[in-house]
Amino acid sequence: IMRKITTLLCVFCCCIAFSQEKEVPTFKKNEIKGNALFLVLGAVEITYERLITEDSGVGATVFFVAEDEFDSNFIFTPYYRAYFGKKPAAGFFVEGFSMISTGISNKMYYYDNNGNLTNIDEDRYTDFALGFGLGSKWVHKRGFVFEINAGIGRNLLSTNSPEVVPRGGITLGYRF
């Protein structure tokens, strides 16, 4: 009888041990964000990010502006990020990015006899850059996202474009 009880107890323990599932952490994997810093300056920058794991994500940013104060008038920036925080895809991060930009460089103006400012020369460019950045992201339990980032890259193709390109902002968004 003791042998039967021991066997039955072992089988029962094995069934319980194998019936437990490994807990898979779940988290929301999509983010949409807007750069509040550029909005104040008169430009629009919108970002979509897809979180691959708790420690990494890929995304793309679109920047456009219709004002003459900016050298670039359209920028598309895909990126990859590695996160080092305790929460999923939050905290300190490092990113590598590429950038396709179009714009106007070498603007030359003169004042005519009536005092009006007139554009006499400008060079248009399209260029491709590679760069890296750093930043930090905070995520509220309801899904709101606040992020600060800065980066630098180098244009590789055109002689008319700026040699060094900055990347950065203060963004607000939502994770869903």
Score class of each variant (00 low, 15 high):
Phe64Tyr: 13
Ile46Asp: 06
Glu54Phe: 09
Val164Arg: 02
His140Gly: 11
Phe92Cys: 06
Asp55Gly: 12
Ala66Glu: 07
Ile52Val: 15
Phe144Gly: 00
Met108Lys: 12
Ser101His: 14
Arg154Ser: 13
Glu69Ile: 15
Ile152Pro: 00
Asp55Glu: 09
Phe18Trp: 12
Ala17Glu: 04
Phe64Glu: 07
Met108Thr: 11
Ile120Gly: 13
Ile5Asn: 10
Pro78Gly: 03
Leu156Gln: 05
Arg175Ser: 01
Glu31Asp: 05
Phe92Gln: 01
Ala89His: 03
Asn155His: 03
Ile32Ala: 00
Tyr79Arg: 01
Ser105Met: 05
Ser19Cys: 10
Met108Glu: 13
Ile120Pro: 00
Val24Cys: 09
Gly131Ala: 14
Glu122Lys: 11
Thr6Val: 13
Glu21Phe: 14
Phe144Val: 02
Ala60Val: 09
Val44Ile: 15
Phe74Tyr: 11
Asn155Phe: 03
Leu156Tyr: 09
Ala43Pro: 04
Phe176Pro: 00
Phe18Lys: 07
Gly91Met: 05
Leu117Trp: 14
Asn116Arg: 12
Glu23Ala: 15
Glu54His: 06
Thr118Tyr: 15
Gly91Leu: 08
Val11Trp: 10
Lys29Met: 12
Thr26Pro: 02
Gly173Ile: 01
Phe18Ala: 08
Ser136Arg: 10
Ala82Val: 14
Ile75Ser: 03
Ser105Val: 06
Leu156Cys: 08
Asp121Ile: 12
Leu157Cys: 09
Val40Phe: 15
Phe63Gly: 00
Thr77Val: 09
Lys28Pro: 02
Glu49Arg: 08
Ala43Thr: 01
Ser161Arg: 04
Cys10Val: 12
Ile148Phe: 15
Lys141Glu: 11
Glu21His: 14
Phe64Val: 06
Ile32Ser: 05
Leu134Gly: 00
Ile16Lys: 07
Asn113Val: 15
Phe38Cys: 10
Phe176Thr: 01
Asp123Pro: 03
Phe18Thr: 09
His140Trp: 11
Leu156Lys: 06
Ser105Ala: 09
Ile32Trp: 05
Ala43Val: 08
Thr126Lys: 11
Phe92Lys: 02
Lys28Ile: 12
Tyr79Leu: 08
Ile16Glu: 08
Cys10Tyr: 11
Gly153Trp: 13
Gly131Trp: 01
Gly34Thr: 06
Thr61Cys: 09
Leu117Arg: 11
Val139Tyr: 00
Phe74Gln: 07
Gln20Tyr: 12
Ala17Gln: 05
Cys15Gly: 03
Leu51Ser: 14
Ile52Ser: 13
Gly168Trp: 01
Asn119Cys: 10
Asn149Gly: 10
Gly42Thr: 08
Tyr79Val: 03
Gly96Ala: 09
Ile1Tyr: 14
Asn155Tyr: 02
Asp121Asn: 14
Tyr174Thr: 07
Thr47Asn: 11
Asp123Cys: 12
Ala90His: 10
Ala89Met: 01
Asp68Ile: 13
Glu69Lys: 04
Gly34His: 02
Val62Ile: 04
Leu130Asn: 08
Ile16Tyr: 09
Ser72Pro: 08
Val24Lys: 08
Phe92Arg: 08
Val145Tyr: 02
Glu163Ser: 10
Ala129Tyr: 05
Asp112Thr: 00
Tyr110His: 05
Ala36Gly: 11
